[in-house]
Design a protein around this nucleic acid. Structure first.
Lengths: 224, 224
DNA sequence: TTATTGATGATAGTAAAACTATTCTTTGTA
DNA sequence: TACAAAGAATAGTTTTACTATCATCAATAA
């Protein structure tokens, strides 16, 4: 287990980098717990400030608003997944094996050991499942995209797209399949939990093996 | 062209059925225009009231809050798509042909002629693309789901799942493929418009033929 | 040592959003 | 003729989403 890793996230994702200070780390730690608990809509900086025994004004010094905080968390998450993929595929040459590791990493990111003390990756994965798509479904996407806000997600998609092409260089839709893999993985977990009619898998006690099997089925049937 | 069709939507989707009165129809009509224009986050009942030259209090008689309004609109939309599918597949027996019509209907719903005077289906499709996933990504999903709020979406997914099984009765993931088809279709349009690195298709001047081709490729490669 | 700065806390305030309540007017219907 | 129902007008309340100011404390540079 490596601790104390700090990801370099885009400047536009914060006012002051929360990874640099004690208060910043408490903001990250507690906001993840609180958003998971009450949902993004009910989450406010005031409630967060109370929870960490600080003040609203202090939280605002780190993030302009809760949308920026969500962007930070999602960006951090996707960087983390990319990091996991890179270490797990480091010595793997077979493209099929590489793809299986990618799928495993995307799905089971959560069951990895903790990378930092101030981010609970399990809860963060829940937040990505529940609220992740709200990060880019905003009226200001184009503006935010210009500032590179979504680059960690796009980079991860690119890594997956290249892995797809390594298996079948003629596959016509590598980027669409990559983004769909990422979206589908989280969506199907959400459906299994809340709208089971929309899926065929189950996630008994958080066991994601059925999802992994299904995603493999989809991906390899498409690209081979 | 049939006008004046009224969908019977779930009681929990409104306080008073907006399809019954003139003001209700103006609320539907203008909220679609306004949400499309400024986005759901900036949309308020006050702004809507000003636009339709009514009052905030009057809007609140129809919908408890903007989330309920969004639920109404999405539910209406998916009922509409199901309606389109049912009339277009009415006399079609070949399951492959049926599936192609389903895909076409889901994707090109928007280019159909208008069904009602008070709902602009083109703009509504935009709203579904931009904001649709927020309808069920809420902390109260389970509660809302109990009230049947998402039944029109689930029914549509079931129709598609059955069409999948009609082609290949042994396909192991009909519901997951159905929900993924619906999600993917809208997502890939969104990506083409705003995050083009995440897709391989283009939507030149709103022409969705590349998307249709891709969805067909995915679906038939998976189920055949 | 002292002065400076940077981070945080404490306090207070504003504007808008998200509602609720009451009363009045109109209009269609028994 | 009356009598509901729908909507308009008006006026509130609470919460959210901020902004501003000033005091305090700790680290560090002069």
């Amino acid at each position: 287990m490596i601790t104390g890793i700090k990801f370099k996230v885009n400047d536009s994702l914060y006012s002051r980098d929360p990874q640099d200070t004690d208060l910043g780390k408490r903001i990250l730690n507690s906001s993840i717990i609180l958003i998971d608990e009450i949902g993004l809509e009910s989450f406010t900086f005031k409630k967060l400030a109370t929870k960490i025994q600080s003040t609203e004004a202090s939280v605002y010094r780190y993030f302009d608003n809760k949308h920026q905080l969500l962007l930070f968390l999602t960006s951090w998450y996707w960087q983390w997944v990319q990091y996991l993929i890179s270490i797990h595929t480091m010595n793997v040459d077979d493209p099929i094996k590489r793809m299986k590791i990618i799928i495993k990493s995307v799905i089971n990111a959560t069951s990895e050991n903790a990378l930092t003390e101030y981010i609970n990756e399990n809860l963060l994965h829940n937040i990505i499942i529940n609220e992740g798509s709200k990060a880019y479904h905003t009226h200001d996407v184009d503006e935010e995209n210009k500032h590179g806000i979504f680059s960690s997600y796009k980079e991860l998609a690119e890594v997956i797209a290249q892995a797809i092409l390594a298996i079948n260089a003629d596959f016509p839709y590598p980027h669409s399949l990559a983004s769909n893999l990422l979206e589908m993985a989280n969506n199907q977990i959400y459906f299994a939990k809340h709208l089971p009619r929309l899926t065929d898998i189950k996630v008994p006690k958080g066991d994601l093996s059925q999802l992994e099997e299904m995603i493999e089925y989809f991906v390899f049937r498409l690209i081979k």
